[in-house]
């Protein structure tokens, strides 16, 4: 079955003498069924992933096997940067700096900033994450990267009422300036500031 979805498609149909109007009700029902099953599966998966991805300790444990190969970033279609910050010279400090950081806590895990890399990547690309799953495939230590990113993406995208890849005309939330946006965050910050000053 072929469905034309654009003028370009219509033209191809015309040239090939294909019938454009076709009965889609039956097919649509089947798709809805599959969708339902997938959504149920997604809800169940997200329940498990929530416990793995929320809270610093959980996140740290989830990524504890990460070796810092950055395969997930390399294969990610959204991670298009020619030079990732985490591969740049800024992320390769000199020995004095490494020693300083080790001395602050008595010990330092190497390579540096392995969890930070994932948090950085989340903040940079989760709005556009399409949950393709390549990152999980490329992970040498079986971290369910794609599920975690998909879960985080579902929340960041919902915050801006945005769906990645749905419409080329939709502006990326990061590029879209609005005067009044997520006002409740400001209130939270103020609340935290007030309680902090009380504690003092």
């Amino acid at each position: 079955m072929l469905i034309s979805n654009s003028e370009k498609g219509d033209k191809v149909f015309e040239n090939l003498e294909l019938k454009k109007e076709i009965e889609l009700t039956e097919w649509g029902k089947k798709i809805e069924n599959i969708k339902k099953k997938k959504l149920k599966n997604k809800d169940e998966t997200f329940k498990i992933i929530k416990t793995m991805a929320e809270g610093f300790d959980n996140l740290q444990e989830t990524f504890s096997h990460c070796i810092g190969c950055h395969n997930c970033g390399t294969v990610c279609p959204i991670c298009y940067c020619r030079q990732c910050y985490f591969d740049s010279s800024v992320s390769k400090p000199n020995a004095d700096f490494i020693m300083m950081r080790a001395k602050e806590r008595g010990g330092l895990s190497l390579p540096l900033d392995r969890l930070m890399f994932h948090i950085g990547r989340m903040s940079h690309m989760s709005l556009s994450c399409v949950s393709c799953g390549l990152c999980t495939d490329a992970c040498p230590v079986n971290i369910p990267v794609a599920k975690i990113f998909s879960y985080v993406a579902s929340q960041t995208q919902a915050t801006f009422d945005y769906k990645s890849g749905e419409n080329a005309g939709d502006p990326l939330p990061m590029k879209d300036y609005r005067l009044d946006e997520i006002g409740e965050l400001g209130k939270l910050v103020k609340k935290a500031e007030i309680s902090e000053s009380h504690n003092e």
């Binding site: 504890s64 008595g106 010990g107 895990s109 190497l110």
Partner: peptide, 24 residues
């Protein structure tokens, strides 16, 4: 020495670490 570079294990995960504190 100023520190120790060695493999470390924690809850089954292994990583290399630079340790400067004797207790660690």
């Amino acid at each position: 020495i100023s520190g120790v570079f060695s493999l470390r294990t924690h809850k089954g995960a292994a990583d290399y670490s630079l340790l400067t504190e004797v207790s660690q």
